[in-house]
Amino acid sequence: MTWADILTRIRRYLRDPDGDIWTDADILTLFNDAALEIAIKTGLIIRVEAHYYPPEFDYSYLYDWEKSFTEGTPDQALNVNQVREGNVITYPWEVAYWLDEEPSADEGNRFIHGFESEYASPAEVVKIPLHAKFSKMKFVGWNEEPIDHRTEAEIAAADGFYRTTQGTPAFYYHPDQQHNQIIIYPRPSVTWQDTDHTEVLDDDGNGMITYDEGWLDIGDLGITYDVIDAEEALFCVYEAYPVEVSELEDEPDFAPYITKYIEAATLERAFGIDSDGYIASLRDHWKFRKDVGIEAIKKWRRLGLTARTYRLGGNLAPKRTRTPQLPADQYVDKY
């Protein structure tokens, strides 16, 4: 369901088809606001991805102010970004230079972008940018093995050379929340990849099992699937915020059957704005629907655990034989 379809539905409920009270931009802002509310309250958007190493990015920027002009996944170039009188400081010894003191020794080579670290002995960690809408990490694996979270302080306390240590990654940490990156420790050796981790097996839309009666315009279609390859990659499972819709052909991150709850939250906001469209009773009605919807989504999520067997320990329940039998070693079979 595209934003154009959703906009038509919302305008129908608003009874404002020509945009006399609420402009398209108003409704778009309210919808993205509502989508964020539903996502935070339900935790419904889970992304499963395999990331390349060294990391890939869409845009590289140097100064903080440049970030707002980038799109997609941005990566801040260089390792040291202090600015003095308009000059970006790249090497630690430059700080001493500006103070007319003796130059400070460095441990290795500085690099501009993460992939360059593999051509030399880097003096710094390689930061891996996460998805712009990353919220909470649920699982991280490196080369098909799980790695655990530690704080940078814990890793630094255990290894004074943690920034340059090379080996098989066992831990990861987030340097901060603002830059939305993770760093894996120890730094892996290079694993250049030129293949896509998501291998589309059947992209012709027919599914694995197909029944289609074209002349009746009726068909029952099966299921298509892709394979995600986690070999020599950073395998991440995380909860995400929704990507804002902006163009008419954009589709929300949610499953289409969740969209009606975002619409209810949008209508609650629209009827609550102190404008000519303010109607308290309709605002309350749509809030009621939104609240019921959030409970419905929570119940839907709980149904996902229907098949789970909970037990304190041990293994599966012992298998039952097809017919009741007496123990053969305690009962004679003939009299």
Partner: peptide, 19 residues
């Protein structure tokens, strides 16, 4: 040797796996 799959049913919206 592939453990993880993304499912995309053609006729319905994906929900939860039961069995």
């Amino acid at each position: 040797e592939r453990p993880v799959y993304r499912l995309a049913p053609e006729n319905d919206y994906m929900g939860w796996i039961l069995n």
